[in-house]
């Protein structure tokens, strides 16, 4: 039994310490956003945020997560209350099949947390590990830029702390 903190909640999970986080999120905690794409660290579909940084959950064994905070796309917002990054992707219609999108969003979210005004080159560099086969790239780039603006606006207009870090 291990304790895993996901989206602000503690979960007791029965998994070997060498189990990659991805399977614990999907199988034990029953979250959908982190996707299996390769299991090899080559595609980015499985990205989630751990302590503010985007990591590939398919190659991150549970042993590394002791005491850390995991955030998945579900933890950012919901259909009724979307987070800025989610609004941005909806407003830009930045998906075709959408399978790659959660990983892209988590990477972008992590980037925007530490760099609220990334240049285009910085966004591309951050997303370099992420594959999209539908060719949604132009829209993804636009959505990340829009998210930066939305987050800035949200920061400016609110003094409350956001929990989803």
């Amino acid at each position: 039994m291990m304790t895993l903190k996901v989206n602000g909640r503690e979960h007791q999970v029965d998994a070997d310490p060498d189990t990659p986080l991805l399977y614990v999120l999907r199988d034990d905690i029953k979250l959908n956003a982190a996707k299996f794409g390769c299991g090899l660290g080559q595609c980015g579909s499985c990205a989630v945020i751990v302590d503010g940084k985007a990591i590939l959950s398919c190659i991150t064994p549970m042993v590394l997560l002791e005491g850390k905070q995991v955030t998945t796309l579900e933890g950012l917002g919901s259909v009724s209350e979307p987070a800025p990054i989610q609004r941005a992707f909806i407003e830009e219609q930045a998906a075709q099949c959408g399978y790659c999108i959660p990983g892209m969003m988590m990477r972008a979210q992590a980037l925007l947390l530490k760099n609220s005004k990334p240049t285009d080159a910085e966004i591309r560099a951050a997303l370099e590990q992420h594959l999209c086969r539908c060719g949604t790239h132009m829209r993804i780039l636009r959505a990340v830029r829009r998210a930066a603006r939305l987050m800035e606006a949200a920061d400016a207009s609110s003094t409350t702390n956001r929990s989803a870090q």
Partner: peptide, 17 residues
């Protein structure tokens, strides 16, 4: 706007996976 995108960007159970 596409009807399927909100679920896809919030972790809805969309895919057979």
């Amino acid at each position: 706007r596409r009807v399927d995108i909100p679920a896809k960007v919030t972790g809805g159970g969309v895919y057979v996976q």
